[in-house]
């Protein structure tokens, strides 16, 4: 099953990069959101998907059941989900703020707001 998960991840990555390369800032943001999801699921699956079971120790036991998934990867992904939500919301506010101050919201217009050419 890992093979199919990996292929799906690849497909989603393709979609994310395709969106990142568009002119519309909105689609760039959508790409950003998607790439964050892809990253989370890569971390999750790279620790191995396990043979079933949860990362919770059953009552009256002192250890996880056999074939449990990796709890550390889950902890990493949990905070990553919340953080990527935070950054996405931040970018959304940026997008909105940009819209409020200028009419054009394409990536080309953004490039011209800051003149690095001396």
């Amino acid at each position: 099953m890992e093979l199919f998960v990996a292929i799906t991840i690849g497909w989603l990555m393709t979609c994310a990069v395709w969106l990142l390369l568009s002119r519309s800032l909105f689609r760039v943001l959508a790409g950003l959101a998607l790439i964050a999801q892809v990253a989370n699921i890569i971390v999750f699956s790279s620790a191995g998907l396990g043979d079933g079971g949860h990362a919770v120790i059953p009552g009256k036991e002192n250890r996880l059941a056999e074939g449990h998934p990796d709890p550390l990867a889950q902890a990493l992904v949990l905070t990553a989900i919340v953080i990527s939500f935070g950054t996405l919301a931040f970018s959304l506010v940026l997008l909105k703020r940009n819209r409020l101050s200028s009419v054009d919201d394409t990536t080309q217009a953004l490039a011209q707001t800051e003149d690095v050419h001396r």
Partner: peptide
């Protein structure tokens, strides 16, 4: 876009294939 996708797929498969040390999470659990 396609190149990135293929690279990520291969990277994920490789990550699944490699286990260099016992996971620290075993001790944590």
């Amino acid at each position: 876009a396609l190149g990135s996708g293929v690279a990520i797929t291969l990277l994920t498969l490789k990550a699944l294939d490699v286990q260099v040390a016992a996971p620290v999470s075993q001790e944590m659990a």
